[in-house]
Design a protein around this nucleic acid. Sequence first.
DNA 1: CTGAAAGCGCTTACAG
DNA 2: CTGAAAGCGCTTACAG
Lengths: 331, 331
Amino acid sequence: MSNVTIYDVAKASGVSLATVSRVLNNPEKVKDVTKKRVLLVIKELGYRPNMIARGLASHKTTTVGVVISDITRASISEMLGGISDIAKKYNYTIKLFTVTESDSLMDSLDEIVSEKIDGAIYLNDELDDEALSKIKETFDDNQIPLVFANVATKLDNVPTVSIDYLKASYEITNFLINDNRKNIYMLSTTRRYNINDLKEQGYTKAILENNLEPKIFRTSGDTNINTQHFKAFFEDKLIDAAIAVRDSIAVSFINVARLAHSKIPDDIAVSGFQNTKYALLSRPTLTCIDIPVYDIGAVAMRLLTKYMTGEKVEENNIILQHQIIRRNSTR
Amino acid sequence: MSNVTIYDVAKASGVSLATVSRVLNNPEKVKDVTKKRVLLVIKELGYRPNMIARGLASHKTTTVGVVISDITRASISEMLGGISDIAKKYNYTIKLFTVTESDSLMDSLDEIVSEKIDGAIYLNDELDDEALSKIKETFDDNQIPLVFANVATKLDNVPTVSIDYLKASYEITNFLINDNRKNIYMLSTTRRYNINDLKEQGYTKAILENNLEPKIFRTSGDTNINTQHFKAFFEDKLIDAAIAVRDSIAVSFINVARLAHSKIPDDIAVSGFQNTKYALLSRPTLTCIDIPVYDIGAVAMRLLTKYMTGEKVEENNIILQHQIIRRNSTR
DNA sequence: CTGAAAGCGCTTACAG
DNA sequence: CTGAAAGCGCTTACAG
């Protein structure tokens, strides 16, 4: 029964409730004997401070908000894993907020802010700079530290944790160019994402530097739909390499390409992005950029703890390392 | 700026703070003119009630805890999606708790309980009945309604939302038996899950009813590891059908089987469980039991709202419908 | 329909 | 090192 209050503990150990509170929050200010006695009573009574009351009195809830748009995306749950592990380590609880497109952004933010969180991590790579700065501003007004995870922006004073998507894309494109590929497509999404734009830029840069022609094919993330698109694609396109912005799109493309009697990787080399389980289960197995999704979450949470406790922060925009995982869909 | 309090609103609209509170919580008790005036001031000042203070005063936090073990599992994020959508609809906020194996169960529960949630959903199919009832008891002691999602148990008075895994497994096994398969393996996990046990039972029942021999092969959920196991498997096993307890294990098995020159589905028919994206991206595409994971989450949350508000509940153990999705890995 | 007052369970200066 | 008291921002009987 958790209806034991700080009063009960105070009475049972013969001290004031102020002292019990100190034992819990500033133990160094309490004499050893007293502390031991109080601690014992706490154990015996099974006392656990009421976090709500503590939150009201101290203006700290030891809760961080995690704001996401589409929880179903594979990367999200891994990022959440990283966030959660570090949050636990620093004794923060997580509140989950989902913002759907039908919601007005400002209303959603107001709601989140009124929950009195100590800080927030925002996961949403669909935001443009305007939306990003509006969000940042709202949190600033309420003095709530905020970190964007897996989001890239040129705005400074907006803390982010991400990888260098432009560079990653540039590298994988060059990798294919060095394999003597001439007709390299980027398979991107119809919908413009903050991060996919960077992938396209890195690709385009490498392509142009080599006097090739950039070719971006946009399709849906939905397997049923992009399968149809890819089937049409093979009726008239010349192609010897493809870089998909997501692993699942790459695998879907491989499946259709093989139906069209293309040999992977000899006729067409294919690369994905992220290194999910899809890449391992695909045949041939998929070469891709490994994105340390768990780490992005973990580092974002760690960064947030620094803002919340007022620790010195050297760098607001953290770039984690990516790498190319070579498998059988490329030579 | 959310530092506007109920006092500011009261003063600005010339009423007492009690009236402002009523406008928000029991509007029918306030005269229309007064209500309109207060509402206007609330808008103008941008007032949003402090949820922490409200929680302390009312003993209701409008927050539900979602307790999970391994957030990385694909099913979890979809279930969370269902939970989140319904929670939003009923104006509940979600607190996320992860319980790792290294944590003591009781300590974790104590922590969760001290967060003063109004109710909880527990997602963990690794628990045996003993653990389940211990958990249920702890929440009962603290008068916190609790629903287990995607968990099966014979204990009554433990609310659950799930599908009939035994029946689903029984059906898919019979489906393969009717295709004249004789050497049907179940590909299960080394680790015993609450739910996988039921899958094994359904399989075994169908097999025995048809005078066949039950054959359960246990492996890891990790693709790299089970690939090795499956390679060894093909050196000495006679097999013409396989039912994997997870889609990803089925796909991994198919990949190895094809390497061993088995034709899918002619030589070996394969079925999975859940109907994830893996099933669609596999070649051949994977037949599997469709599990309405999102719905399980949504229904669990809806059920929980009933417990929290004291609504009548007809049935504590809700079974959702599954179905067999036939694709190309079976005939 | 509305207000004054107590209370929710804590924390935190302020004294001593 | 410890206690008395004010306060965090609300809700909710209790009167009227």
